[in-house]
Simulated scan of single mutants.
Amino acid sequence: MTGSAAVAAFAASMTAAQAETWRYAFEEAITDVQGVYATKFKEEVEANSDHEIQLFPYGTLGESADTMEQTQAGILQFVDQSPGFTGSLIPEAQVFFVPYLLPQDTEQLGEFFRTSKAINEMFPEIYAEQGLELLKMFPEGEVCMTTQEPVKSPEDLNEVKFRVMTNPLLVENYRAFGATPTPLPWGETYGGLQTGIIQGQENPMFWIESAKMYEVTEVITCAGHNNFTTAVMANKDFYDGLSEEDQQMIQDAMDVAFDHIIDYQKGLHEESLEKILEAKPSMTVNVLTEEERAPFVAAAEEVEAKFIEMTGDSGQELLEQFKADLAAVTE
């Protein structure tokens, strides 16, 4: 073997040795928003490196608590999980469940998530304390309620057992809205609605359609109270052990996937609603007026106070920065 051939062979073997397979789990189906984001990220990583990404949609590795444990243990390299499921682990992340804080406008939301100091500077430090590298947060769409009976005011939610994620502030949210909040893992929600153990739940419209929540409820109510947010994280030890080149490549892939998912969501709410009404024409859809929303908006003050009570000075500081970041985008 010539010297140059030997060098080429050695370089090839080194490249092969450095190529790794990384595991990435998320909370939705491959065709849902998190799956579309993950697929774009995978495409970018594999196009710009020798690494391979294995994707694990919801249910393949257990519930959300399972995939978080696997990520913290280093079994998974990446995980996409809503702050709704990390609220007990990272109390400050519950700020996303203060009602009527986030705008519903997709363009404003995208700009907020791109530029927010709270999201891009303060949150990474908080997540790092739990062994997690926060890579990206992004919105998934307006959250709407599905119930058995119409909801026009908090009184209509009285004694309604309403499924919420296992998140302390979301419990307070629906308590303030007049319901009986019932924390349940996602896997038990459809059956719970079917059997009457619970009578309501909330999710973005695409998920109501995808998970067929309309089959086991009769009314969709959009009160404009929230926009579902999710976070992509890496195991911090894994991420810190990467070369600067690989870290930059991951960040670039996250940025491309973010732009892709913001664009992908344009019109998704309306398209999903059309599919629901086509599948079930008897489904009632109510979009609350400003007057009807007023008592729900008033209840948000109580939830905000609970958030500060749960998180102390760090939560207060984060909330103030959150509001300043939002004002910069919406004004």
Rank of each mutant, 00 (worst) to 15 (best):
M1H: 14
T2H: 12
G3K: 14
V7I: 15
V7G: 01
A8H: 03
S13L: 14
M14H: 06
Q18S: 10
A19Q: 11
A19V: 09
A19N: 06
E20G: 04
T21N: 05
T21D: 09
R23I: 09
F26H: 05
A29T: 06
I30M: 08
T31R: 06
D32F: 03
G35S: 09
G35W: 08
E43R: 10
V45I: 15
V45Q: 03
H51K: 04
E52K: 15
Q54I: 15
P57W: 05
E63V: 14
E63A: 15
A65G: 14
A65L: 12
D66H: 13
Q72D: 08
G74I: 10
L76F: 13
Q77M: 08
S82A: 13
T86S: 12
T86P: 00
G87N: 03
S88R: 09
I90T: 07
E92K: 00
F97C: 02
P99M: 06
L102E: 06
L102Y: 00
Q104F: 02
E107W: 12
F112V: 09
K117F: 11
E121C: 02
M122D: 14
M122V: 12
F123Q: 00
P124V: 03
A128I: 02
L132R: 01
P139T: 04
E140C: 07
V143L: 05
V143G: 01
T146M: 07
E149S: 13
E149Q: 14
K152M: 12
S153A: 15
P154S: 08
P154L: 11
P154Y: 08
E155N: 07
L157S: 08
N158E: 14
N158C: 05
E159G: 07
K161D: 12
V164R: 03
M165I: 02
T166R: 01
N167R: 10
L170V: 04
L170Q: 11
V171I: 15
Y174Q: 05
Y174D: 05
A176G: 09
F177I: 06
G178K: 11
A179T: 13
T180I: 06
T182I: 14
P183L: 08
L184H: 04
T189Q: 11
Y190R: 09
L193W: 10
Q194S: 10
Q194P: 00
T195V: 12
G200W: 00
F206K: 00
W207L: 09
E209A: 09
I220P: 01
I220D: 02
I220C: 03
G224N: 00
V232A: 11
M233K: 00
A234W: 03
F238R: 01
Y239N: 07
D240K: 04
S243N: 10
E244S: 14
M249F: 07
I250S: 02
I250G: 01
Q251M: 12
A253C: 12
D263W: 07
D263K: 14
K266C: 02
S272D: 07
L273K: 05
K275F: 08
L277V: 07
P281C: 13
P281W: 14
T284H: 03
V285T: 12
E291H: 10
E292S: 11
F296A: 07
F296D: 04
E301D: 14
E302W: 05
V303T: 11
F307A: 04
E309I: 04
T311Q: 02
G315I: 10
E317K: 12
E317G: 00
E317L: 09
E317C: 01
F322G: 02
A328T: 10
